[in-house]
């Protein structure tokens, strides 16, 4: 694999750490946007041939994840008038530490999992790590909007996994996922907006009032 390709994957990993360590919601949104562009750039820099498949995917990724979703989230942030802090259950220092442990686990897992030998060996741990980061963020953050963000991080991980295994996944599946995603973000955005209107806040830990 080329050095640039590898550098992008490393940047992808570091962006996940930034998500774990930052206290600003707006930084999280920007990180997501950057990840979207990264994912769009990846197929062009890796050594594999450029096909119609990659062009469509990369364009869709840049458009949706790099621009549309972040804009959508920024608007949701403004509309919901939430405090611009992440409000974690698990502190940022501890989150970084968990991230390191998760990264180590992903490296181990990537070696242990059977995979085609052509797959570059940063790509697999990096994409698994994004999945883990997303899961951890969903578990450890309070606000509904952070959870929507974390869901997108997970999806980025899934897309990255697809990139890593590019030749083995049909275009249709990818596009289908993107479409699902679009719908999901749309629904989540509306839901967040409504939760906010109803309760004047979007803390999920108070949603349990709804249980009865």
């Amino acid at each position: 694999m080329s050095a640039w390709d590898q550098a992008l994957w490393v940047a992808f990993i570091l962006l996940n750490f930034l998500l774990l360590g930052t206290s600003r919601l707006s930084v999280c949104v920007r990180v997501l946007s950057a990840q979207g562009f990264l994912l769009a750039a990846l197929p062009w820099l890796s050594s594999s041939a450029i096909t119609g498949h990659t062009v469509v995917l990369s364009a869709a990724s840049a458009l949706l994840k790099g621009l549309v979703f972040p804009w959508f989230f920024m608007r949701a942030l403004d509309a919901a008038e939430v405090r611009r802090e992440v409000e974690p259950y698990v502190g940022f220092g501890a989150s970084l530490f968990v991230g390191l442990a998760a990264l180590g686990f992903c490296v181990w897992l990537a070696r242990a999992l059977p995979h085609p030998s052509a797959v570059s060996n940063v790509a697999l741990p990096a994409s698994l790590f994004a999945l883990m980061t997303g899961l951890f963020l969903i578990v450890s953050r309070k606000k509904a909007i952070t959870q929507a963000l974390a869901y997108l991080v997970m999806e980025n991980g899934a897309t990255a996994l697809g990139m890593a295994l590019l030749h083995w996944e049909p275009l249709v599946v990818e596009l289908g996922i993107l479409l699902d995603l679009f719908a999901a973000v749309f629904v989540m955005g509306i839901a967040v907006y409504h939760i906010n209107r109803e309760f004047d806040h979007i803390d999920t830990d108070r949603l349990n009032y709804l249980k009865d």
Binding site: V10, I13, L14, F17, G21, G93, L96, F97, G99, L100, L103
Partner: peptide, 10 residues
């Protein structure tokens, strides 16, 4: 500092 640590470990 933790960020520096992350960068070293990565």
């Amino acid at each position: 500092i933790a960020g520096a640590g992350v960068s070293a470990v990565v």
